[in-house]
Amino acid sequence: MYKMDFSVVLQSWDLFLWGLWLTFAYTTASIVIGVVIGFAVCFSRLSNNWFIRLLARAYQEVFRCTPLLVQLLWFYYALPLLLGFSLDNTTAALLTLSLYAGSFYAEIFRGGILSIDRGQTEAAKAIAMSGRQTMWRIVMPQALKRMLPAFINQSVIQFKNTSLISVISVGELAYMAAVVNGQTYRPLEAYTVVAVLYFALLFPMTQVADYVERRLRVSD
């Protein structure tokens, strides 16, 4: 019978902490960049120019319809062959995570904007607002509120997806579990600790998402 002993792996607590910090940093950075990309792509898809719409759509479908794992491998191993210079693994990781997040955020933002009643736009136009004023003063504040639960959920997924960058040897939480396992030969303990850490971080976030969703339903 296997005898569990967490003390061995917990001696490497500094590795776990470092991994946690890296995961947090990659996730946050890719969410921030992803939001910027998401807005740019969202407005491109709402553009009057069919070519811009097409480009944005193509980007979204490519990133939504291929696995993140494949994207990471492609950006790290394949893209440099096309570019003629290599990307270091951290750049490839951040780039891929951000582009992946952006494709999903764009759809959430677009859905939020389109969900706002046409009457709102008309009322804004009727008081002579410009298109830009209508978007930023009337449509967007309402849309942001409505898209918040989906945004939080997607960000939770993004947090978990960050674990995949370990396949191109970028250090983060899951990667550290592998390192600790290599040092201690204690896979059960090492991977359990990582799972518990993920859960401890993400469970509160999903609770916040549920809470926000409930609150919004009441105020609507």
Partner: peptide, 27 residues
């Protein structure tokens, strides 16, 4: 040329006073 609609179309994220002031302030 102002317009009033069948379904009111008030801005739900603004108070009554803010709804009325929006045009004169912003436009």
């Amino acid at each position: 040329v102002g317009m009033v609609f069948q379904h009111f179309n008030l801005f739900p994220h603004k108070t009554v006073l803010q709804n009325i002031c929006e045009g004169p302030l912003v436009v």
